[in-house]
Design a protein around this nucleic acid. Sequence first.
DNA 1: GAACAGTTTGACCAATCGGTCAGGGTCACG
DNA 2: CGTGACCCTGACCGATTGGTCAAACTGTTC
Lengths: 217, 217
Amino acid sequence: MAEEQNAQDFTEDGDEGKRPLTRIQKVNRGKILEAALEVFSAHGFRGATLDQIAAEAGLSKPNVLYYFPSKEAIHEALLAGLLDIWLAPLRKMDPEGEPREEIMRYMRRKLEMSREMPRESRLFANEVLQGAPRIGAGLSTDLKTLVDEKAAVIDTWIAQGRLAPVDPHHLIFSIWALTQHYADFDVQVRAVLGPGKDPIEGAAPFLELLFTRLLTP
Amino acid sequence: MAEEQNAQDFTEDGDEGKRPLTRIQKVNRGKILEAALEVFSAHGFRGATLDQIAAEAGLSKPNVLYYFPSKEAIHEALLAGLLDIWLAPLRKMDPEGEPREEIMRYMRRKLEMSREMPRESRLFANEVLQGAPRIGAGLSTDLKTLVDEKAAVIDTWIAQGRLAPVDPHHLIFSIWALTQHYADFDVQVRAVLGPGKDPIEGAAPFLELLFTRLLTP
DNA sequence: GAACAGTTTGACCAATCGGTCAGGGTCACG
DNA sequence: CGTGACCCTGACCGATTGGTCAAACTGTTC
């Protein structure tokens, strides 16, 4: 195997890894990540090829490898920020807010993300489906911590009688499942509904009704 | 080892292809399909290799190709019956039955399938996630027909006032999303809940509550 | 405009993958 | 126990894939 590790590498230096980041670097890294999101989300990690990514980015394969040390590194770079982006709406859930409105707002924001960021959703789904080999750690640490924390908030709300008594963990799962379904299974949903309307447009009022009925004491 | 009686001795070829199917053939085809289900569901079509399947089945690669003409053919053989198996519970939904009980029964059966056939669920999810390149046709024909038919039944029930008014298509989607989530995103669910209990055990009462609240007029 | 860092590429490589093939082993049955 | 159909395998092949490399090109700065 190639054991040669380029010691003088990229941003992973813990200390002063100050790198001015050329204009061309910024542009091309962006193009690569955008192309990689397109290809990885459509074919999975194993199903995507560097040639596809390079073509999609409008660069040559060696040029892509000039900006990222490996295919794996591109994938990691994509997943790196994804978990945070993905959980940002949940983080915003305010313990001081009105319980039902807070949960509904979270659900709406997640549904909106399924419409506006379906590729990110599918990238994530691909990763989890195959056992989360590359972000498994983040799931049982960051993710679990955040969910447990918000579940505690929900339990408080329930104890105060401001919310119908439901299992808070499964409530959060249900929001994930119901919203991401429209991004991840888009082809199936569209095949069933037939051509024309945006599926999420019909989903929105349904989910409003569903969660209102579920959460009203 | 997992000894699953893959009762799928398929004698297709409406033509003259009526070989009696040797005992060894039955056994080895079963071993290959079982192994392929394991590997395809875990890594996707592109991510799975014939060597993996052969190793999992305890056969040599050329031997695997003796029973199936190609990797593609193995995958197709798996998907062939899957859509039917997958939709069987929906087919059983009885227009003459008690509306809420019929829908609850369907939901329960789907949840049960997530527990007992998670690999099939993930195989299906993998296929749909990547645009359903191999069963796309079946989605907009068989699947759409069945769902439209059952949606009409649900609409009738609603018109009779025996069910709360909800969009029947999205109701069916919600059952799919909520139940399959526990199979497809198993790693994530377990990471969040922590080790120990079976996630589906906790999901069952939650889903009972959710759909009861949603469907009661 | 020299000089050097940063950028790009064609040619190439080793590994892996799906699949083939000739030949040999094994089973069932008369 | 012979024989033909069925079963199995090691060796091999062409294509694809992730990745390397030397050399050439470009942009920027003094």
